[in-house]
Write a protein that binds this DNA or RNA. Structure first.
Lengths: 201, 201, 201, 201
DNA sequence: GATGAATGAGAATTCATTCAT
DNA sequence: GATGAATGAATTCTCATTCAT
């Protein structure tokens, strides 16, 4: 796969960009990726199809911007919890971070559901990978600070399990809404995540 | 929406069906769902576009057949382990089942990777849901037999966590090939899955 | 337009021909000309698509056979009245013939409606023209016998008006079922037809 | 069946619409309805297939526009005669209206011949029915004004015969060009039409 | 004589993208 | 900067017809 060229052809009206991305979010949520035609997005944004191409290089570029927005929003929403984590006891900090993650996903539920269900993962993998990398780095540091002497490989393994499990379970919990109370879900997830890095009994 | 009728409009040569499904697998792997046109699949199968429609009602029906093949193969591959589970101690039986699951996924890695990365989930959700349901039922029964007196809601919650976590981690382990030894992965997964149903300390 | 080649490639089982034509009648009536595919007709006839081509040269040839049957049936149904016409007074004979025509059309109403509404006229024009020609000839003779001395051109004009008007009104009466009693319709039509050949007042 | 929405998806160049409709007329005349593909019409109009769909929702919509043009033109051409009819004696007014009808059909002969011969009637029935309805209403009013005391059912019957007969004979006269002088045709038709509403002798 | 799987040209329609205004 | 009419390649699907068995 050749690396995708990214970012606007030209930067013009900040407001128009926002309107297009808003429209794309709305159209994607309404009709899914396949049916989300550029003309439809343009119409929803109240601009002409030609205008789209003044701001975005192609259709994927618009989708890219949508994902970017979600990812950035998520990152910002979770950042405080991550920064505050080091100062708290392990269980509390973990719970707090997971709660922040869950809250951030909940706040973006419709769009995330659209992507998870209706967009091929390869379309948003790059940005998601990048975000996951960032979160994993922080998680690794937090863990390393509390497990001096544990081999790096073990810390990485624990991080891998913790991040992957969290990511999946939180998204599914939000999207599927299983009959599990929010607190019970967070408690169980916290326990599980902590379990990945427990010293062998 | 009326339930989509599935599979052959007419039953003809068994070999041609196989060639079309093989071709579909190959085309999906090569170019993803969106670009996998019926003409492309037909060409890859060495048949005319019209022939496709003697065997499949539309494009989705072909994809359906591909998924069916994976799901059925998976179900059969895992069945012996599930049947043998009741007779073994908890830890051994869990490990054995998870090993069978991992092995079955490994055997289908390229196809599963294709679907996970390149096909919108809604396209294979119905069959996957059905398979997950079947597996969940068995898991629930095994658990219930070993946790007499535990409320049904708790058993269901444990099953939900266990099945979702296993599904995701096993697929990611196979697809991403993280630097975690197979046995270590299985051990950690076994521990985690058992943890979901552990009596509160 | 090149003259259409006609009639079966080979004459084989008389019964199979009948079954195919029956099936064509039924399919045409059910779904119209456009949707009446050869495969559909074959299925309705209980034969394979290939078999059709042992009896008919192409799709139009089948439609041709259907029309032929209707036209022949119509001709036979009307013949007695036409033959008996010479022996009766003008008004009675005209009424009798028109009644026979109406009855013959009524007996074929569904098929005629299908053709009139759903088949381009050019498809059945040749046979219809031939039939009309035959009927016109008889009508002309009957008229000539009763209007000695009237110029041929006048007789032909009267025949033209009478045949065209009858054809159209009878078919519309049967197909549209206007709220006109059958007898009143026949009386009015008789009066009109006789009017075409009335000596100028 | 929901009523088909008709005419432009978007309104664009008036000239392009005309070119497409012109092309449709020409293609329909050349190859008939079945063979008149949208691509063919587009090519004949000198536009791309996609452009067609900026103006028309589907193939039938194009045919609809063609018919609309004929029907509207006919309606406008005949309107003055219909409006002037009330002021003239019965025979004169009838002759004048029939002359206007004949003239209007003559002016559209090639197109009408195309439709009559090569387009399934159900394709243009709705508009034709509407036009016939309008004309019938006027005819009924003219008749009613001159036949006070005649039961409505009788007037309706006379109108039905007159309109149907006129419609058919005029179209056939123009399309078939039988060896009947125009004036003689109009005289005979006038006599026939008046005959339908004559008080019983 | 019959079969029916296979054919493949061609139909209607879509939509990302361009460019003259 | 914006427009929006126009593009045209590509897509899904059909169906009259053939021919090896």
């Amino acid at each position: 796969m050749p690396p995708k060229r990214r970012s606007p052809t030209q930067q013009r009206s900040r407001e128009t960009v926002a309107r297009i991305v808003d429209a794309a979010v709305s159209v994607l949520s309404d009709v899914g990726y396949d049916q989300a035609s550029t003309n439809r997005i343009a119409a929803a944004a109240g601009v002409s199809p030609g205008t789209l191409y003044g701001y975005f290089s192609d259709k994927d570029d618009i989708v890219f911007a949508v994902i970017e927005r979600v990812v950035e929003g998520f990152g910002e929403a979770v950042a405080p919890a991550l920064r505050g984590a080091a100062a708290l006891p392990e269980r509390e900090s973990t719970w707090m971070v997971l709660d922040a993650v869950l809250t951030a996903i909940e706040a973006r539920a419709p769009l995330i559901e659209t992507f998870v269900d209706r967009v091929p993962a390869e379309r948003y993998a790059p940005q998601l990978d990048q975000l996951r990398e960032r979160v994993s780095d922080v998680a690794f540091q937090l863990l390393a600070a509390r497990r001096p002497g544990v081999p790096v490989a073990d810390l990485e393994r624990a991080t891998w399990f913790a991040v992957r499990t969290t990511e999946h379970l939180v998204v599914r919990y939000v999207v599927l809404q299983p009959p599990i109370p929010r607190d019970a879900f967070l408690d169980e997830l916290t326990r599980t995540v902590l379990g990945f890095s427990a010293p062998p009994a």
